[in-house]
């Protein structure tokens, strides 16, 4: 590789710094805000120097928001737990259903196959409001309103198409000969799927699962309409911060930080699988 010249490298570093600042500064600001009192945050002009406080976090974990003169009971930690249960279960269910389906779409040509795949994808671009009202009526009728199962089911609209379409591409990239070779070795179809196809598509499955988890985590409108506070995730729970007595910026910031942590940790853990270039050198190209 050619060594780039000094001016070019400095220019690149400057650009990277500017881009990083642009995207990371809000996150940094929120992090700082979460350790400030409302008075510190609203000070004019703003100052980066303040006495850090854990009051915001304490209030969230205790579930008692103290605003201007009033106390409000919220279940923010329960909301986070709900978010986690809903997202994780949705992704797991989608993996269970979507990975075999993706394999089928990648490997076999069958009647209406492409139509079915496209219909599943179309769930992603239909506006949720389109289906919400009828769904609400169904859910109340079926007793699914305000249940985890009901929400996990609806969340499949978000997670299943995503996993199906991403993983399908990865299966298509695996040479069918590798699976043929495994079958000829004497292994059953199921073993060749579990021992060859799935491990080889693992980076894709990891990426799709992570993306689906984030999409599910960030969903707002399904849980807002189809559940009560018992099953509602953080996105809906955060509404409680806007009270008649004012907006508690510090507590919102702390809530945001807490709600980002699970996704952040998950992304760090998955990173290993995401960059795994397994199929390199498998087949002479």
């Amino acid at each position: 590789m050619q060594r780039s010249s000094w001016p070019w490298r400095i220019f690149k570093a400057l650009c990277l710094t500017a881009i990083s600042l642009f995207f990371l500064f809000p996150i940094l600001w929120v992090l700082l805000m979460s350790f400030q009192t409302n008075a510190d945050i609203l000070r004019v002009p703003p100052s980066p120097f303040f006495t850090p406080t854990l009051a915001n976090y304490k209030a969230l974990i205790a579930g008692e928001l103290t605003g201007a003169g009033s106390t409000l009971q919220i279940a923010y930690m329960k909301n986070i737990l709900n978010s986690f249960v809903l997202s994780a279960c949705s992704v797991l269910l989608s993996l269970l259903l979507g990975v075999p389906a993706a394999y089928a779409f990648a490997r076999y040509r069958f009647r209406l196959g492409e139509n079915i795949a496209f219909t599943l994808l179309s769930f992603r671009f239909a506006p949720p409001l389109l289906v919400l009202l009828p769904l609400l009526l169904y859910f109340q009728e079926l007793g699914l309103y305000d249940t985890y199962i009901g929400l996990i089911w609806v969340y499949q609209l978000i997670t299943l198409p995503l996993i199906l379409w991403i993983v399908r591409g990865y299966f298509e990239d695996v040479s069918p000969d590798i699976e043929h070779a495994y079958r000829i070795d004497g292994h059953s179809w199921l073993r060749s799927f579990l021992k060859i196809a799935v491990p080889l598509a693992r980076p894709g499955i990891a990426a799709a699962a992570l993306l689906a988890f984030i999409f599910a985590w960030n969903n707002f409108v399904f849980a807002l309409i189809l559940g009560s506070s018992d099953v509602q995730p953080v996105t809906v729970g955060a509404l409680a911060f806007i009270t008649a007595s004012g907006i508690q910026y510090g507590q919102i910031a702390a809530g945001l930080v807490l709600s980002v942590i699970p996704t952040f940790v998950l992304a760090l853990v998955m990173q290993r699988y995401l960059v795994e270039g397994l199929s390199l050198g498998a087949v002479k190209g």
Binding site: D177, A181, I184, G186, P199, L200, S279, A282, V283
Partner: peptide
């Protein structure tokens, strides 16, 4: 009960 060697090797990369 056949053994087969593929032109593209088809080894299991993992």
């Amino acid at each position: 009960g056949i053994g087969m060697a593929f032109q593209n090797f088809a080894l299991y990369p993992h």
